[in-house]
Design a protein around this nucleic acid. Sequence first.
RNA 1: GGCCUCGUAGCUCAGGGGAUAGAGCAGCGGUCUUCUAAACCGCGUGUCGCAGGUUCGAAUCCUGCCGGGGCCGCCA
Length: 553
Amino acid sequence: MTPDQLSKEVLSAARDVFTDRGLDPAALPAAAPLERPRNREHGDYASTIALQLAKRVGVAPRELATALADRLGRTAGVKSVEVAGPGFLNIRLEAAAAGELARVVVQAGERYGHSTALAGQKVNLEFVSANPTGPLHLGAVRWAALGDALARLLRATGAEVTTEYYFNDAGAQVDRFADSLLAAARGQEVPADGYGGDYIDDIAQAVLARHPGAAELPDPPAREVFGTEGIALMFAEIKSSLAGFGVHFDVFFNERDLHDRGELDAALGSLRGHGHVYERDGAVWLRTTDFGDDKDRVLVRRTGAPTYFLADCAYYYDRRQVRGFDRVVMMLGADHHGYVGRMRALAACFGDDPDRHLELLIGQMVNLVRAGTVVKMSKRHGTVVTLDDLVDAIGVDAARYALARYSPDSPIDIDVELWTRATRDNPVYYVQYAHARIASLLRNAAELGITRGADFDPGLLGHEKEHELLTALGEFPQAVTSAAELREPHRVARYCEGLAGTYHRFYDTCRVLPQGDEQPTELTRARLWLVEASRIVLANGLALLGVSTPDRM
RNA sequence: GGCCUCGUAGCUCAGGGGAUAGAGCAGCGGUCUUCUAAACCGCGUGUCGCAGGUUCGAAUCCUGCCGGGGCCGCCA
């Protein structure tokens, strides 16, 4: 029996009790709360439904709980139900009912843990969105790992997701980039507000290789060549780094397209139509203070030039009105949190509900730690730690895992020494090792000619360690759903670590394959089902994080 | 000054209102002639920053304060 099924049984028991006692069924929740108690003496599962309903229907909690326990205790597969404390229901399952979970998992395979919890939602998920004027630095990489994991999670829970990278290859930033390249190509000092770093020299040389003599052109055409070619080369490098990192974007959205398609005007018209646009000092403003922003924002400057903010409006308009996404999710670094107020106000100015149509996820900073000290980054001096640096230092799997295993609210120090270690304290190795151990066991079984067969006796999986493993496997779907709904992929990583530990403990205690001259038994087969189920869940969990599942280590 | 975020064991962190707050590391001591010891087992650790509030119940929600980090542009 899965937790989901048990929860339904609890609800159905509650419904029966309510009917018997003539209580109002409208007080019943949509789903019965079910949790896994910390303390194993409190059963396999516990429900607080009696505590939550008691007041609403005017029955003492323990009295309600007792009636529920009575009814629920007669359910097939339920071994016992006890009332504890103020009105907890402590539920234990029959070994056979618990063991059935191995079958559920094996039969579902790659789909185990997937659901339709977010079905029907059309989500635009924007992340990274770094302008191609330099390599991706550590902060952007956190979003690459987290955004990609989130996209996988949302898809696994049924949402329709488009991943998107928004960029701008025109404007002052690009001019500075072009000037820096040009200066490097001419062997001059980088301009004061320019970009530093070795990559500037590299790109400048690459441009020269394609356009010999470009550095000798007069400034305007030279700047044009270095700007256009430099951006193209830089972007190619970024895309190749992302591909190597296992991150794929459905759409690379160029801000310029918004201008070319007239969407800035369209967005402006729409905002005017909603009555939040006004003129002052010769500029066109959006009254974002109507919706909690700390000041109004300029849309069109006195000079007639649109602001970047108007492009933001147009980009939002494009996603909501033109392409019809239900929800726009944007992942921002903590240094951009100042955008939150204006972005939410912007959405409201289009008549949207910022709580429903727009979601701004803020992630804290990332540092790389070598030899116990933080590697300091400086854009000015070009000492940025890039995606490629990180991958070179600890590899793709460790990098993705390290970036995904912490709450986005928590700043991360990635210790190179830790994440390259092959021991228990390196979480990615610990989890992958569990998978490799299983794969090895399954190889050995195949060599011995032992298969798990078409069926097994779930009642044989009654050992304490087996029971714990089964319970852990049962928690996976809820871990996935909550990670997706809360936009917190680290929950999946933490779940995987817990499961890996539970598996290692099972493995340590419960021999699976026969030794010496022993013959395989029904228990051997039952355990092979459990082992395969464990492998599937570890693989599904790591897949959601974009981390590989090695068969050998 | 305003806004965001964090504050949980010596360290790094988990804990989306539930029971006696948990993992790893660090420290000490155990377990491999047989399925991967990259593992497992045992021992110790807490004013959950402080003070109020909501609740049958708060590390969790609300308010204030203290402390760390970050951000405030007719730049892009």
